[in-house]
């Protein structure tokens, strides 16, 4: 039980494993926080589905270092991201910008949701009407089924 508690405690205090290596980090904690935030917006161009913050690829490492150098040179976050975009295209943004070519991506789900809602709403409205009453033949069939367990010929 005690071992278990120690294990849990150890898990709680341990930091998650990052790709960022200690020697890459900036001494200024505020700048380092900004560097991490920018790195999470940028896609590793080699691995394609990781941020450069979490990627172990060499090119991602060099991009992280470049982000930090530019921060130290006094550039703001937008300038740094804009530089990367100017080199690699919008591809390098992990969060696609809202523009003509990404319109379907951004509003597509809402359009589909609306269309679905419309279908459901119109169905519900139609379903709210009372169905036609049973004809005398149908009532006779039901009565016969209840009474004899079979249809009358």
């Amino acid at each position: 039980m005690k071992t278990f508690a120690i294990l849990i405690a150890a898990l709680c205090v341990s930091a998650p494993a990052w790709a960022v290596e200690p020697q890459e980090m900036l001494k200024d904690p505020a700048l380092e926080v900004r560097a991490r935030a920018i790195s999470k917006e940028l896609r590793c161009v080699q691995c394609q589905n990781e941020t450069i913050d979490e990627s172990g690829a060499q090119i991602a490492r060099d991009m992280r270092i470049l982000v930090r150098e530019r921060l130290q040179a006094g550039e703001n976050d937008d300038q740094i991201i804009a530089y990367m975009v100017s080199r690699y295209g919008d591809y390098v943004r992990l969060r696609p910008r809202f523009m003509n070519s990404t319109l379907a991506l951004w509003i597509g789900p809402f359009v589909i949701l609306l269309a679905g809602g419309f279908v459901v709403a119109s169905r519900l409205r139609k379903g709210g009407k009372n169905p036609d009453p049973l004809t005398p033949e149908e009532q006779a069939t039901i009565a016969s089924l209840i009474e004899h367990g079979e249809r009358t010929p």
Binding site: Q58, D62, L66, R87
Partner: peptide, 12 residues
């Protein structure tokens, strides 16, 4: 340190 490579948008 990949300065030029990144400037050229090199991936691999």
């Amino acid at each position: 340190r990949s300065k030029a490579a990144i400037a050229f948008g090199v991936v691999a």
